[in-house]
Computed example of a mutant assay.
Amino acid sequence: MKTKNFLLSLLISLCFSCKSQTKKINGVSFVASRDTIHKVHIKPVLKAQSNYVALMPFGFIRKLATPKIIYNTNRQWFGETKNGLLQYAKKFQKEGIKIMVKPHIWVYHGEFTGNIKMTSEKNWTILENSYLEFILTYAKAAENLQADILCIGTELEQFVMNRPVYWQKLIKEIRKVYKGKLTYAANWDEFKRVPFWSALDYIGIDAYFPLTDKKTPSVADFEAGWKPHKNEIKQVQKQFKKPILFTEFGYRSIDFSGKEPWNSNRVTENVNLEAQVNGLQAIHNQFWKEEWFAGGFVWKWFHSHDRVGGEKNNRFTPQNKPAEELLRKLYAQ
């Protein structure tokens, strides 16, 4: 009888374990603010049925060829610093939400981080040492928090492709101080060339793939646009046998939102709430039921929910738009 009870308990435990492993990451990219956060800022994330947040401390460099990273200073917004990360994470964890720590680099004037590239071996070495200090600061913080995932870099293609040996060594150094899962956030046109996927736990993609040139694409239009990209994603997944994680995904509520989804420069153009909704529905249809797909983090979510987004807003956030209601339904599935 005791043996039967033990076997039954083991079977139940295994079943719960399987369920927990197959639960998708239904995440939001939580934007750092000037201030501390409180439960009032977390309630909308819970209402959206999110089970993860990506928290994004920042480092800054002055130019694409500047080797020194400035980070964790009192001149930054609180949420962009180590103390901000710790405060945010502990508040979310108290409410049962899991954490991905996702450090970003910001180049002054908003230049694309994928083009960060040094002009001398001396400066490459300075950058490598500076980035090591930067990422280990947040790797140690992630370990302190027992964060579930650490993203070791975000859209750094030229740095990655020009210094592959450094990145392999960097991953080993990170694993000495952080015991959770690792990923890297490759840009949508970069992920096929990342040389170190085998050393990580997830293949991370910032999934702003060009999908359709239509002004207001239907769900079917978006899904048709996904076909070639999805095939390439599946090939990379099959090669490395790692789950795919969309470290960022999302669409602006704007005309032609599927043409260049990464484009944040069209500030004054028409609001198109339907296009945003259809894009989110399509990406969920295409990926969330796939066994090899781990989930993703919608871009982006601001702490002061009542003051952002809305039906006159053409930016990425789904907050206070039909997209938020859809996201809630999709994440609840």
Results as ranks from 00 to 15, higher is better:
1 M>W: 12
2 K>A: 12
3 T>V: 11
4 K>P: 01
4 K>E: 14
6 F>H: 07
8 L>H: 04
12 I>D: 01
14 L>Q: 13
14 L>W: 03
15 C>A: 11
15 C>N: 09
17 S>W: 12
22 T>P: 07
23 K>F: 02
25 I>F: 06
31 V>Y: 09
34 R>L: 03
34 R>E: 13
38 H>G: 12
38 H>K: 04
40 V>E: 15
43 K>P: 07
45 V>F: 05
46 L>S: 05
47 K>N: 15
49 Q>I: 08
50 S>C: 15
55 L>T: 05
57 P>W: 00
58 F>C: 10
60 F>C: 09
62 R>Y: 10
62 R>S: 15
63 K>C: 04
64 L>A: 01
65 A>H: 10
67 P>W: 01
71 Y>A: 11
73 T>A: 07
73 T>Y: 05
78 F>S: 00
80 E>K: 01
81 T>M: 04
82 K>R: 12
82 K>S: 09
85 L>C: 03
88 Y>K: 06
89 A>P: 00
91 K>E: 15
94 K>Q: 14
95 E>L: 05
95 E>I: 01
97 I>L: 00
99 I>D: 01
103 P>F: 12
103 P>L: 06
106 W>E: 10
109 H>T: 13
109 H>M: 07
110 G>S: 05
111 E>P: 00
113 T>C: 07
115 N>A: 14
117 K>R: 13
119 T>C: 00
121 E>V: 06
130 S>Q: 00
131 Y>A: 02
134 F>Q: 06
135 I>P: 06
136 L>I: 14
137 T>Y: 09
138 Y>G: 05
139 A>V: 07
140 K>M: 10
144 N>G: 14
148 D>L: 11
156 L>E: 13
157 E>V: 07
157 E>M: 11
160 V>D: 00
162 N>P: 00
164 P>N: 00
166 Y>M: 06
166 Y>R: 05
167 W>Q: 03
171 I>D: 12
173 E>K: 15
175 R>E: 13
175 R>C: 09
176 K>M: 06
179 K>L: 06
180 G>T: 14
183 T>M: 12
187 N>A: 11
197 W>I: 01
200 L>F: 02
201 D>E: 10
202 Y>F: 14
209 F>C: 10
209 F>H: 03
209 F>M: 14
209 F>D: 11
210 P>E: 04
211 L>F: 08
212 T>I: 04
215 K>P: 10
216 T>K: 12
217 P>T: 10
217 P>E: 08
220 A>T: 15
229 H>F: 14
231 N>Y: 07
231 N>C: 08
232 E>V: 11
234 K>D: 11
235 Q>A: 14
237 Q>G: 14
240 F>C: 03
249 F>C: 13
249 F>T: 03
258 G>E: 08
262 W>A: 01
264 S>I: 15
264 S>R: 07
267 V>K: 13
268 T>W: 03
268 T>D: 15
269 E>L: 06
269 E>Q: 08
271 V>E: 02
271 V>M: 09
272 N>V: 08
280 L>V: 03
280 L>A: 01
281 Q>W: 02
285 N>F: 03
288 W>V: 09
291 E>M: 08
292 W>N: 09
295 G>P: 08
296 G>C: 05
299 W>N: 04
301 W>T: 03
306 D>Q: 15
306 D>A: 15
313 N>H: 14
322 P>C: 05
323 A>W: 01
330 L>P: 01
331 Y>L: 01
